[in-house]
Nucleic acid binder design. Structure first.
Lengths: 213, 213
DNA sequence: ACCTGAACACCGTTCAAGT
DNA sequence: ACCTGAACACCGTTCAAGT
């Protein structure tokens, strides 16, 4: 049975199995051999569909980030656009935390990622930001999202941080992180996003183009 | 010559060689075998000094981050403290960009990282921020630094992004990134940091403790 | 205590061969 | 076109053995 009449594998099926394994066991544990085993196939068979492991991971990352929402710019409100984009971006990363290193490795050649970057840039320019500021603000917002995801989901503190409690007294509060980690992460992200956007307002007043007031 | 009278290896020498190879060839290319070869030794010999590759990398990361400066809080000015911390943090990451994944994997058990986290938290509380806000602001600032480093040094766009220029017209400006990447990165980081801190000021006025005015 | 040589249990990827 | 079996060139880590 070297070649069944109907193909066993397909790109979507391979991606799905890969993502399931990554979610369950972590990115480091994923190997082409284990992935093949999960699909009841030989490792070499995967290479009939994906040329490299890297290419496979890149497409999985693309799939996961498809639901990032850049429609918030449609109304012409740059602040709304950034908030919707940032929150949906963060939500996408939170759904598959083990995939974060792949996603944050950059959009690479991923079509959708480039389309979204274009929409953000265009939305900001359309709202009156000079192109150079649009670039910087797009980058800055991404910093916040990716940084928040990295620190939150990649576990910033060890599980047994309590060990250090008495040695570093000021951390006594921070150590409750282990218990209320998700809540603190969420609140920190919202604080950072709000403060950042509030801080941008006076800049906008100063540099915006097409202003008549 | 199974054991020379004076040891060939030492932890600092191993770390130095590892960092040199990481800087030169990238984190992924580093293997215990290549590292051993560089030190004119067998791979197994490294395990007399470090129990795992992970432990070695963790200590290299600790070494690289030693110069992060939290002294800015000494004057009681939280804004100055955060600026000094954030800039020196970013500078440390920029010096060894290939090591970024290891550093952003979290402080783990690294002593110095915990001491700095404590200093930041204590500095913010000392300046009048409620403990909960101190935690959030410390986290947020780290988001900015780590996010900026990830997007900047881990190459957010492909080298040959120009391919997409006509397909995504609004990216025409963003594509100059390739040439002026370092400058844009720097400016974006400063813009984000400044806007974030400016946005925090009214929050501070509202929540600070020990205020008499 | 520190290093060696050989081994174990893995990797990603290639390729002739089969249908 | 798609899958197999075997191979190649690697990995991190262990361990008895040597000094």
């Amino acid at each position: 049975m070297a070649r069944p009449k109907t193909p066993i594998l397909s790109k979507p099926a391979i991606r799905e199995a890969a993502l399931t394994l990554i979610d369950r066991d972590g990115l480091e544990k994923l190997s082409m051999r284990k992935l093949a085993q999960e699909l009841a196939v030989q490792a070499a068979s995967l290479y009939s569909h994906y040329r490299t492991k890297e290419e496979l991971l890149s497409e999985v990352a693309e799939e996961v980030t498809t639901h990032i929402d850049v429609s918030g710019f449609d109304g012409g409100d740059w602040r709304e656009g950034l908030v919707v984009w940032a929150r949906s971006y963060r939500a996408a990363l939170a759904e598959h935390p083990n995939l974060l290193p792949v996603i944050s490795a950059g959009p690479g050649r991923r079509e959708e990622a480039l389309r979204r970057a274009d929409a953000v840039h265009g939305g900001l320019v359309g709202a009156g930001w000079p192109p150079r500021y649009a670039t910087m603000i797009g980058a800055s917002t991404k910093y916040l999202v990716v940084g928040a995801a990295t620190n939150s989901f990649a576990r910033g503190f060890d599980d047994d941080v309590r060990v250090y409690q008495d040695r570093y007294p000021n951390l006594s509060q921070a150590h409750r992180l282990a218990e209320v980690a998700a809540e603190i992460d969420q609140d920190s992200f919202e604080l950072a996003l709000t403060a950042f956007l509030d801080g941008l307002v006076p800049v906008y007043e100063k540099v915006r183009v097409g202003a008549s007031d």
